[in-house]
Design a protein around this nucleic acid. Sequence first.
DNA 1: GTTGGTATCTGTGGA
DNA 2: AGATACCAAC
Length: 770
Amino acid sequence: MTGKSYLDELNEVQRKAVIQTDGPVLVVAGPGSGKTRVLTYRIAHLIEKGVAPWEILALTFTNKAAREMKERIERVVGDAANRVWAGTFHAIFARILRVEAEKIGYPSNFTIYDSDDSASVINAIIKELNLDKSVYNTNAIRSRISSAKSSLITPRLYAENEELMEQDRMAKRQYTHVIYQKYTERCKRSGAMDFDDLLYRLYELIQQNPDGVLDKYRARFKYVLVDEFQDTNHLQYAIIRKLVQFEGSPRNICVVGDDAQSIYAFRGATIQNILDFEEDFQKYGIQVFKLEQNYRSTDQIVQAANHVIAYNRRQIPKTIWSNKGVGHKIKVIKALTDTEEGKRVVDTIVEQRNRYHLSNKEIAILYRTNAQSRIFEEYLRRYNLPYRVFGGLSFYQRKEVKDLIAYLRLAVNPRDEEALRRVINYPKRAIGDTTVDKISAAAGEANQPMWELLGTVDVGPRTHKAIAAFVRMIQSFMTLAQTGNAYEVAVTIAERAGLIDTLKTDTTVEGLSRLENLNALLDGIKTFVEEDESSETTGQEDKSLASYLQNIALLTDFDNEENSEGDYVTLMSVHSAKGLEFKSIFLVGMEEKLFPSFMALDTPEGLDEERRLFYVAITRAELFLTLSYALSRYRFGQMRYNEISRFLEELPREHLESTGALPGTSFGRGSSTASAGRESASPGASVSGNFQRRTTAQSAPLRVDPKTFSPSPSNQIQAGMKVLHLKFGEGKVISVDGSQDNRVATIHFSEIDSPERRIMLKFAKLQILT
DNA sequence: GTTGGTATCTGTGGA
DNA sequence: AGATACCAAC
């Protein structure tokens, strides 16, 4: 023990994980277990031990996590913290690529395409290829391209891959590989990288290793740390391995993650990485630490969470426990409609605030989809409760903001085709679609940026003149961009491009707010320029337009809320709530097809991911957890009727307040043999008490210990078999009907009250006994 | 080429 | 419901 004060703030396992600085380390960290603390103290410890800050690379998923980490390191070691390479994968890699891009044929001022840009490129290609856009769904194609890249599959490898091609044929999208090919070409000639490219091109760079660039970074980053490792994809892990796995490497790599909180499989993340990591570094003396004590939530919440996650199949065994007292039971709110849900949730917020003296900022409403926020906003407004919505349409996605940014992007990189298309005729300057299509076709043929071909297309004299004027204007912007600072340049461009005048002619309410947004953007650029240089690790003193653009390309709404102070109720998606905690959590919309999302219902993997998401949601709560559902809600202009989420049913009744908000939960579902040991840890003094009307009749949600349960493939289930079900226990299959995907079994479970159950086989987990 | 209206389609998550 | 695509008329 060194006796350093920060080490005293750690529990034993945490301290071991901090002190074990050399060699490979895997930290498996449950929710609220002090994971960030371990990471930051570890970095601080390295610096105190004499490691230079710039030899440390710390990769996170969100800017927020990166910022928090830097702040906390700074508190321990002071200014040195600013020299640590800490940031998101995307931001750090973009920073490296700015320096090295020319080695792989990109300009150093490359544009970063956001997902809207990507979608628009794909749309344009689908159109040009004359493909049916109802078959070639943009998002489907985009995610396919994205996962190909994340698996290191080039367009050529894609076309040669029988499995992928077969999948595309099955989906009647056999030209996907052509779109991928063209997409890649287009980004390249535009000097643009999409989010996946920031990873993929970096991999390409260090793979090809021109001028020994790989060795440079291997030598630089002596210590590598990765946060949220369960959310890394194949490509990210490949890059990490390249950096630390080589002959003579000290392999000072520390990854921190929680398989139970992996919620980004949809964008290629795989918990396989955690398992692989263990194996890959086995022979280099990997140390594994498990952080199992939860410092955030009451026992009630932790136990409920443990129980829920036990329904998932594959996981790293761990037992999360809390000593924060039993706590309040979980409350369930039932509503008939979405409006009623809104009202009742906000009513409860008011009540809770009063009764427990909670401030607004200690309360959050979490939902599965951003679209659900509206009704809660309505009632919060009505009750005069200040709130803040995160996510959804970000500031930078607004039309007027994108318009100006497109001009700025062109001024920095005129090859940027998406920016060019966006503004070539906005404000109106008589360069219509026909002309743009001609230029685009020429660009495709010559595989040259549209910008280079503007003057060469065959058009009438009027259009020709208009194009020439546009080119002159952009050229003047380009000159401008190299001189002044970003703010002055942006103001001048906004005026000279005619954006401000155009908006001023619109006197509607929306028009006014657009103008305001434009001004807000300009103010933001001003702040960027004036910002104290020393405060940010990423921003050198570069206050150029190019630097600004790179900065915002990787920002989300989430990041640039300076005024995060203030007493607001928080509204956000469960995804964005990851890593956060609140005294009181309201998890709303607990309905089948919403949470779990209908998109995930087809596969067991999808469902497991939704369950992990549910796990993440409930473990955000420190003291109070309230779940709500509506039996009907408007979606896409239509009233839909919903069933209660299966996840609600998976919550042990003993952790629920008995409000009768759940059907068939009359506390009589038979006696109980709850999986022993679960509740034994919590006999402690009840800090809550006052809320519990009755403490009788705890019903057992599980009849089978999930640890010994191994479900059989559902296609093997046949009439006459004896099977085991987690909740219902042993049963006999009476009949199976339906076909293919929709086989339904009628099963007689002798251990439960209404023994005859019809079960969708694609969802059910049944273990065949005989 | 531009304008303004109607038909159609979309159904998560985020750097 | 809201955005976007498409189409007819100027």
